[in-house]
Amino acid sequence: MKTGKISIITPGIFSTIQDSGRFGFKKYGVPVSGAMDHYAFRMVNLILGNQQDHAVMEITMAGPVLQFSKSTRICFCGGDFDLQLNDLKVAPNEVIQIQENDIFKIGRSKQGFRGYLGISGGFQSETVLNSKSMYEGLTDEFRLSKNTSLAFNAENPSFENNYSSVRFDDRYLADKYIPAYPGPEFSKLSKFQQLKIYETEFSLAASSNRMAIQFEGNFENDLKGISSAPVIPGTVQLIPSGKLFVLGKDCQTTGGYPRVLQLSEYAFHVIAQKAPANLIQFKRLDYKN
């Protein structure tokens, strides 16, 4: 395989390599990881004609400056970031042709919080437990660093126009409503609390990260801890102090706090794109028999 290198001139605020996730290892306490916004992740690979689980770069809030050693094709989906190729503005959600020594800059996000840079054939970083997703303590690197490099397949496979189109629907970036099912301990809330949790606007805290999305303030409750029980990304936990948080893709595999809500798949895409101080409101979904 002919390999190209991407030099990371600056890494951005928090940039990582992610794929669809690391499955089959939860019994060992290994998080699933993977792209926070799975919709944007899938779309960037689809636009490039990649396999749906090819590794991409996940960018948080403000992105890196990258230089390519070989020609290739890239695409950017997700939040509305400022994108420049050799100091000229380029559009997201479409294939961008890269030439040798080109410099690609990903600026700050104007809407949304995370963006996804895909490349033809996916990023060729290390595979650990069947996944390229970076995770601290498991992979050699847990975020991209300045003056390091990434490998990619520079074979430049043929890219034929099949006369079909792929449209990235970015309306979810502005959606403040987060569809959520009642969780296993939802019934332990009082009737008033059950209504209030769906009627309250919550503001995202600056401490939010890939492990957990946290909210400002407290949600008054008298729930105690529970015996350690399974949790997954999108589980909403309520701790005795009243702090409410949504577990992210790097969350633990079990938890001892009441699981009051569970986000839908769409809801996780939406909340993954929310920045600190953004307001959200949970929207009730009910299970169908």
Rank of each mutant, 00 (worst) to 15 (best):
G255P: 03
R73C: 09
V56D: 09
A151R: 07
I280G: 01
S33T: 15
K5H: 09
S71E: 15
F104P: 12
S145M: 14
D37Y: 04
A229E: 15
G225E: 14
V32G: 00
Q99H: 15
Q51K: 13
V236A: 05
F41Y: 15
E94D: 11
K27T: 12
C77R: 04
N153L: 12
I13Y: 11
K249R: 15
S158L: 13
Y181F: 14
S145H: 12
E126P: 00
S33M: 08
G63K: 05
H54Q: 15
F14D: 13
G112I: 04
T148I: 06
D87E: 15
K105S: 15
P179G: 06
E100Q: 14
A206D: 11
F14S: 10
Y177I: 03
N289E: 12
K224N: 15
P11N: 04
D53T: 10
N147H: 13
R210V: 05
M1H: 10
T253S: 10
P233M: 07
D102S: 05
S149R: 08
F168T: 07
I96Q: 07
L117E: 07
F76Q: 08
T72D: 09
C75N: 09
Y172L: 12
F41R: 06
A272P: 00
D286T: 11
D169I: 11
N93K: 09
